[in-house]
Computed example of a mutant assay.
Amino acid sequence: MRIPFVKMHGLGNDFIVLDARATPLPPLSPPSVRALADRNEGIGCDQVIVLEPDADAACRMRIYNQDGGEVEACGNASRAVGMLLGEPARIMTNSGMINTRPDDSGIAVDMGEPRFEWDAIPLAYAMDTLAMPLGWEELEQPTAVNVGNPHVVFFVEDNDAVLLDQIGPQIEHDELFPERINVNVASIEDRSTIRLRVWERGAGLTRACGTGACATAVAAMRRGLVDREVTVHLPGGPLFITWGEDNRITMTGPATESFRGTFEWGDYA
């Protein structure tokens, strides 16, 4: 059974996209996802994306990190799927409906409304999420926000100086975060510019994280550090984030198709 796929990326955050809208796929197990995502013996990616039919949307998008776990949202994958669809579209995700549309700068995605309540992140116990009274080594007083998936954001003088590959896993797996957490370290350049690096739960260091850019922008806006429209510079490139008066976040940026191919399902089952 040969399965077609599209290899795509958003600012270097790369995906294997499997289209199961017309022809259903066998269930994806965590070992199958890990095998497909393996960069030495598989196709290689940060996330495997499966498109399924949905009665109320152009498709349902399911997102699997390279460790095999399914997650709720992925901003870069949303742009990639929006590019594949090629027209304004509604996409159902595990965190709810999102809307995409072609834009002069790539694909614009309505990411919905952020959540700040401690039990919406979720945290293991109640606390203020604007400046959480705790820290890990030099990283202190993060802001927590859920933008379809959970993030903590640390504001630092120089985010390149943080050993994120070492401290990121500690924070991701801390008992405070029952569903684990994405870890963002950000430096404010000016009122409209942020530099960001992200440790993504289940994937590790990533060149770009769309939901991380959204979470970081909103966290900085809540703290009064930036205006309501910002450019977030990630290692893979920039994303433009706005947080409107209607409380909805819009993310705009590029998506790229790398190549297409097929694989034998039995090789990865």
Rank of each mutant, 00 (worst) to 15 (best):
V156S: 00
V183C: 09
F155H: 03
E172V: 07
S187L: 02
V183W: 04
V152I: 13
V183Q: 07
V153W: 01
V152N: 04
A161W: 04
V156K: 10
E189I: 00
V152R: 11
E189C: 02
E179F: 11
I167V: 14
N149R: 08
I181Y: 09
V156G: 00
A161S: 09
V152L: 08
G148S: 06
G148C: 05
N159W: 02
A186Y: 00
V152W: 13
P150L: 05
V152S: 01
N182E: 01
D165T: 12
V147G: 09
D174W: 08
D174Q: 12
S187Y: 01
N182C: 04
N184E: 05
D160P: 15
G148H: 06
Q166W: 10
G148N: 06
V185S: 03
F177T: 13
Q170E: 13
V152E: 02
V147D: 01
N159G: 04
D165P: 12
V147Q: 04
V156D: 00
E179T: 10
F154P: 00
D165H: 13
V162T: 06
N159S: 06
V152P: 12
V147K: 09
F155K: 04
R180W: 13
I181E: 04
G148Y: 05
E189F: 00
P178T: 15
V152T: 04
V162K: 11
E172Q: 09
L164W: 07
E179G: 02
N159D: 03
A186G: 03
P178Q: 15
P178Y: 15
D160C: 10
E172L: 07
I167D: 11
P169T: 14
V183S: 10
D160Q: 13
Q166N: 12
N184D: 05
E175L: 14
D160R: 15
E157K: 02
N182W: 11
D158I: 05
V156N: 01
F155T: 02
V153Q: 01
P150M: 07
Q166P: 06
E179K: 10
P169V: 15
D174M: 11
P169E: 05
P150Q: 03
H151W: 10
V152A: 01
